[in-house]
Nucleic acid binder design. Structure first.
Lengths: 327, 327
DNA sequence: ATGAAAGCGCTAACAT
DNA sequence: ATGTTAGCGCTTTCAT
């Protein structure tokens, strides 16, 4: 292993000078800097991450807790992750992967000083991790919105606005009886923040415009989608507008509508709440409200790093939903 | 921050004793151990990861390079990741996430001693990362099989056998004209190891059983799937058996077959090469050859850790494919 | 069975 | 503008 001493010797300077060339924390004369950089290149020197962390109490690693669990849409998750990793790298940070079911993970990596900051995805309304996060030294950003976000930073799509927007779009297209097909029952049951918020927005517009509007959870299987569609049309046969917040069930919902002789967009309208790419890849390109995963992931990194730099207070950011009309 | 010194004081022992209690590397009398463990619990002490890495040159972190790029099936990727993280945690390791496009990432985390070992997914036949991996201090496991695996450990599904198995299953069901619908063209073009190997196996059985057999890349869009199906049926109208190695195109391939009036399984047979869950979630549950992502990820961790422990030589492991008959 | 002490490789005062 | 030096918190010889 090449150490900073080796580099210092090769460049004819002291170790601290090498350190300062690397960090830019004090001015170095041009010739010295050149020699040091040359030596670094010649020896292909890399600072030892552990030694650095020990001396500076900075790891340049961000912990990311990802839901690898039932009912979560993988493509949405991957987009978040991509956004986080990409942005983290741009800010010279790496990403340590934690999983939702690794209960002690937060405490472990935080108390063990493995990370400088933590981003948590897929937050529930009363998430059990929130008290833990509040107790950590490291700043935290939640992707999602807990019931009480006091003292914590949060980012997310404004799912409540998305629920309103979806309903309003359908109403605007003349539909008086509409329905929300949501995530699978298990996701609804744990009151995953986004699921609840979409429903709230949807109901808000239902009341405001006095529409008839059903809300139904939806399994991701062909059968589950069939049951959900049939349930809605059983209770409200006049339903002609659907807001579908369930990327994996989407093809099966469309399939079931087709089986029942309902054509999109002639007989019924469908608005999807999912990543644009998913909406476009359906049998007919759907009108959709985008879930901009990469953007949100990137914003999460920005927020958490800015809190690291400048002790800024926690803040919540909700991104306005954007609806793109297709079929 | 509580340090090992704090614990030592609280327990009335020396720091080294605390360290040995933690590592189990020498025998400690029962009463001392009790006192130390008590102190650790009381102070909720966590060793500083950086200090540990510095002193022991072990980080207990595994680097995992994941393809977040075009044309890769996310659900397969997530399964691998899940397998890796789960197994890593069981062996008391964490996972640092690297992305394929982060070219310098391998060198950075390896030379910077951020990781003890590296797992690389989605390997191409002549992968440019291979020479880099050969140069690292840390042991490496590839998920996939490069043209020349000498000196490197590899794990994967035996995709060549899977290609043979799929073709043989179709032939065994009486089909004389069959087709392979593969991954998107960009994946084929970069000679991603698994794509090539499936084709090789498929062609092997074609020759062996003198079948007529087309091979076609397949975009993941509805349109792309339509084109691929039409292309095959244009060139070989008698085709009645399909092996589909493209999870995202699968629903659209089935859709196009239906549009052309071909029913599954009455008129044509379809075998899917994808995770079981994906095959089951189609409009009709498909006969499939499983891609056991979690298992492979877990095996990768086992292999890389065993190389870490015991300086074992590199080895390649190919998991035998399993076909499950459905519709 | 336990302690003392020498690093591991780096950063950041404190010097000049 | 640069060098000297004292840690950062741990592991692991070397002693006893």
């Amino acid at each position: 292993m090449t150490t900073i001493e080796d580099v210092a010797k090769a460049a004819g300077v002291s170790a601290s000078t090498v350190s300062y060339v690397l960090s830019g924390k004090r001015s170095i004369s041009a010739p010295t800097r050149k020699r040091v950089e040359q030596a670094i290149a010649d020896l292909s020197y890399r600072p030892h991450a552990g030694a650095r962390a020990l001396a500076s109490s900075r790891t340049n690693v961000i912990g990311l807790m990802v839901p690898l669990r039932a009912g979560v849409d993988v493509s949405v998750v991957m987009q978040f992750v991509t956004g986080v990793v990409t942005h983290a790298r741009q800010a010279d940070h790496d990403v340590l992967l934690l999983t939702q079911d690794d209960a002690g993970g937060l405490e472990r990596v935080a108390a063990g000083s493995m990370v400088d900051a933590i981003i948590v995805m897929d937050v529930e309304a009363d998430d059990p991790r929130i008290p833990i996060l509040r107790g950590l030294r490291q700043p935290t950003v939640l992707i999602g919105l807990p019931r009480d976000p006091a003292g914590l930073s949060c980012v997310d799509l404004d799912f409540e606005a998305a629920g309103r927007l979806g309903a309003a779009h359908l109403a605007g297209a003349g539909h008086r009886e509409i329905a929300l097909l949501g995530p699978p029952p298990e996701v609804m049951a744990r009151h995953t923040s986004y699921a609840d918020r979409v429903i709230r927005g949807f109901r808000h517009t239902r009341a405001e415009r006095s529409l008839a509007a059903e809300v139904e959870a939806c399994e991701t299987t062909p059968d589950g989608a069939r049951r959900a569609v049939d349930a809605v049309l059983g209770r409200a046969p006049g339903t002609t507008g659907f807001l579908v917040h369930n990327e994996r069930a989407l093809p099966h919902v469309l399939g079931r509508l087709a089986e029942r002789g309902l054509r999109v967009p002639e007989d019924v309208s469908v608005v999807a709440l999912c990543p644009t790419a998913v909406a476009m890849a359906q049998s007919v390109p759907l009108t959709s409200i985008d879930i901009p995963g990469e953007v949100i992931g990137g914003v999460a990194v920005d927020m958490v790093l800015s809190r690291l730099e400048s002790k800024q207070p926690a803040e919540s950011r909700l991104l306005a939903p954007v609806l793109t009309a297709r079929d």
